[in-house]
Each structure stands twice: as C-alpha cells, then as structure tokens.
Design a protein around this nucleic acid. Structure first.
Length: 428
RNA sequence: GUGAGUAUAGCUCAACCGGUCAGAGCGCCAGGUUGUGGCCCUGGAGGUUGCGGGUUCGAGUCCCGCUACUCACCCCA
C-alpha cells in the first residue's frame, strides 16, 4: 500500500470552503491600501540568507533559530522569507528607488516562513499583510502607518483591540540607556530568570518584555528609556503622540515594548487582541531608520507594519463575521439522454460566454440526482432539457426557491436567463 | 528546543471497573416519485479503533516507544 502524504507540520491547506473567505478578506484589504495610496510589491519567496542575517540581526530569534535555510545547487545559502521588510528594503536599494521617488509607499500580502513550534495563531507558513513607507523620517508617516493598520482592523468590525506604543530610541541615545539598564539589571542579577541572565549583556532591552514572574518584579522599577531619549527621538515621539491624539487614535504607552527585530528605531508598536490565545499580537511594526545603511544602501529612513492574516481570521471566525457569499452557480443545466446533451452543453457554454455562472451535469446521473446536485450547489435556476422538451423545441426552467416552472423556447432561453440574471444583480 | 493533553467512519463524537463495543448524528449513495431538489420514511457503502511493541484467556479500553494534532513556555504576525 502506498503511503498517504499530508501537508507538512505547521502548514495549512485552504480548501474551497475557506478560500472564498481569504479572497474576500484580501480584496477588502487591497482596497484600503489603495485608499491610502500604497501600491503592491511582490518579492520572491526566498532570498539569499545573508539579507535576513544582516537585516534582521544575527542575534534575533528569527535568524538564530527559526529560518528555513537551504543550499541551492550552486551552493548559495537561501532562506524562505521570515518577514517582508528586509526584502522590500533590498528591492528599494537594488533599484535605487531613492533616486526615482522621494517616498516609496508599498504594501504586500504574502506567505512567510518561520520554523517554530505551531500553536494557536502560530504557523510555520503564515500570511502577513503589511505596508512600508520608505523615505521619510516625519512622524506623520508613523501615524499614517498606524492609522492604516487600525483602519484595516476596524474595517472588519474588530473593536476589541489595544494599540501599544513605545519608542526604542536610536543609535545616539539607545547605547547610553542600554548601559544604564545593564547596570540596573546587574544589581538584581540573582533574581533574574536564566533567559534574562543570558540576554543581559547581549540584548538588555529584551529583558524588559520578559513575562517571567521573577523578572517582572525586577523590571517594574527599571529605568525607562523615556528619560534617556535624545532630543530628536523625544521630539519625534511627542509629535507622533500629538498626531495620534489629533486624529483620534487611542494608544497605551508600553515602555517595555521591545520588538524582536534589531532594525527598529524610535517608534515601535503592537496591536493586541484579547480574542486571541497566548499569541495575542494581531499586528506590529515600527520605524527602521538604520536598515537601509545596514544593507549597504543610502541613509534612508522607513516605517512599516505587518498584520497576521490567520490571527485576524481567528478573531473574525470567533466573532461570527460574514465573509461575503460563497460563489454559487446561477443556473444548473440538467439533461436526459444523448440528444439533449448537445443542447445542454450549448446552453451552458453560451451562458458562460455571457459571464453568467453556471454548471452542467458532468456525471450522467439521473434527473433526481441532478436536481439534488443543483440544490446542493445553491443554483437559483435549473434548466431541464429532455426528450419531451426537444420534441417541442423548448426547455423547462425551474425556479429553485419558489418551485415554479416555465416552458421556454430553446431560441429564447439565453435571453430568458440573461434577464433573470440582470434582475438578480439589480436587487442585490 | 521544553512541558501537558489528545488520537475511534469523510466530519462531530459515543462505547460503565479490560469481556457481543466497533456505534450514533451529520454527510455520501440508492429506493419510496416510469423525467424533478429542499421535509419525511426505508435501505446501503464506509473503520486493520494513528503506527509498532508489551501485559492478559481476552485490549478501542492498561503499560512502553514512535508519529501526528492541540494548547502552553520561548518568541512573534
């Protein structure tokens, strides 16, 4: 017996009963991006490993233990993209977009890959929608990005969320703060968790968002970066808050919010939802003014966000959200006998050329089975072509909802259905 | 990578302390309607109880291993 293969761990098949929901969600999201004047960018699903290693940071969890890395036949190390920002920046630098347009506003909807242990809201292949605005250091752009992600979330009637906002400083002020923080943490070294002890020197900021109870008591009184921000960062942060206030966006300051990617500077934010399980971040993002240079590009600032599509879908399913209508044929053409088949197919293909969704019996079943099939598929009308009809040069049209039946001349059937279809479209 | 829980028909789940326990509902197929769906009735197909060992007279049920799934830690979307 042959082995039955299955989808690999942490991946999901999206079958027809689900895929229409995805199409609906993606379509709505694309519309919103258009409204904010962002254009789609599509980059390859894999890149040279070095891009992520340099862009995201060797010490991050993503790079150090979660990447799907492999060698191609030429011996080049490639990696399935674990996030999108590095790829977008790579393209930005590669095509010297800074010389073409002052501000590059793009969005993406794409699968991402991270080799983590799957759990609720966490997959190895998952989908993110996101946007990047490269070329401006103005806090207005940070605000636009935040407004955009919240607009998307709210457009799906998700009200129960919290925007957490923080600043992580920049190359001028962060180092000094790091030293102060390290010094503070060393005083309580013995009280810290093992993980935090290890991080203390390598990445002290990460200790701040530890959820370990032992760490929490220490963190509670730790010095905050707010007191150590340089003028530039402080002004930027204050401006951003002011703009958010002005456009009515509510946020919670979360001084311990530290994002897991090294390239963030200044603004960092996260949108969390209590509807999700332990993986409660539906979206996250921030500013990355050092990334371009880190990748050998020009000194260009950027800001962006990413939203987890599966996580948002979890909330929507939980809320009983209506994902539009599942596509259904308008007409099902049933027939009986060889002679009728020609007419049936003729009608179906003519209707299809008129872009009317329809189906025809393809399994040569009994009329009863065909009616059942039409019902199952949700067809509004069934056209029946049989011996009796052909003799009289007509066909029978059954309205599946009312049960009414009409005799229609064969040469008038297209017209008949077309007008029914037009009526249907106008009442929607 | 660590921990816990789960694994019976396509789906959702039953089967008391191991002893007609391999079942139900839904779905699927057929018939009741010589050419007509939905409701109803009748019947049918479909399972080596995740895989491999062990204990026992006897294992879906107990033990061990493996695998997968789920949730949590870690981290993040």
């Amino acid at each position: 017996m042959k082995k039955i293969l299955k989808n690999v761990r942490g991946t999901k098949d999206i079958l027809p009963d689900e895929s229409y929901k995805w199409q609906y969600v993606e379509q709505r999201i694309r519309k919103i991006f258009e409204v904010y004047n962002y254009r789609e960018i599509r980059t390859p699903i894999f890149e040279e490993t070095e891009l992520f290693a340099r862009g995201i940071g060797e010490l991050t969890d993503i790079v150090s233990k979660e990447m799907y890395t492999f060698f191609d036949k030429g011996g080049t190390s490639l990696t399935l993209k674990p996030e999108m920002t590095a790829s977008v920046m790579r393209a930005y630098i590669q095509y010297e977009i800074n010389k073409q347009v002052p501000l590059f506003k793009v969005y993406y909807i794409s699968p991402m890959f991270r080799q983590e242990r799957p759990q609720a809201g966490r997959l190895r292949q998952f989908h993110q929608v996101g946007a990047e605005a490269i070329g401006s250091q103005n806090p207005e752009v940070d605000a636009e990005i935040i407004a955009l992600v919240l607009h998307i979330i709210e457009s799906f009637n998700i009200e129960n969320y919290t925007l957490k906002l923080n600043t992580v400083g920049c190359q001028n002020c962060r180092p000094a703060y790091k030293e102060v923080l390290k010094e503070y943490l060393r005083k309580f070294y013995d009280l810290l968790s093992e993980d935090s002890k290890n991080r203390l020197d390598r990445n002290p900021l990460r200790v701040l968002d530890s959820k370990d109870e032992r760490d929490k008591t220490v963190i509670e009184n730790a010095p905050l970066i707010y007191e150590y921000l340089c003028d530039d960062c402080e002004v930027h942060f204050n401006e951003l808050k002011k703009i958010l206030d002005t456009i009515g966006i509510k946020y919670e300051l979360e001084p311990h919010l530290v994002r897991g990617l090294d390239y963030y500077t200044k603004t960092a934010f996260e949108v969390i939802s209590p509807e999700l399980g332990s993986q409660d971040a539906i979206a996250g993002g921030g500013r990355y003014d050092l990334l371009s240079k880190e990748l050998g590009g020009p000194d260009v600032p950027g800001v962006g966000f990413a939203l987890g599509v599966e996580r948002m879908m979890l909330i929507l399913e939980k809320n009983g959200y209506k994902f539009g209508e599942i596509p259904k044929p308008f007409v099902y053409v049933a027939y009986l006998g060889q002679d009728s088949q020609k007419f049936a197919f003729n009608i179906v293909f003519s209707l299809r050329k008129k872009m009317i969704p329809c189906e025809v019996e393809l399994l040569n079943r009994s009329l009863k089975s065909q009616m059942k099939e039409a019902d199952r598929q949700g067809a509004k009308f069934v056209i029946i072509v049989g011996e009796d009809e052909l003799k009289n040069d007509k066909c029978t049209v059954r309205d599946m909802k009312s049960g009414e039946q009409f005799d229609v001349k064969l040469n008038q059937i297209l017209e008949f259905i077309t007008s029914k279809y037009a009526q249907e479209a106008s009442t929607d």
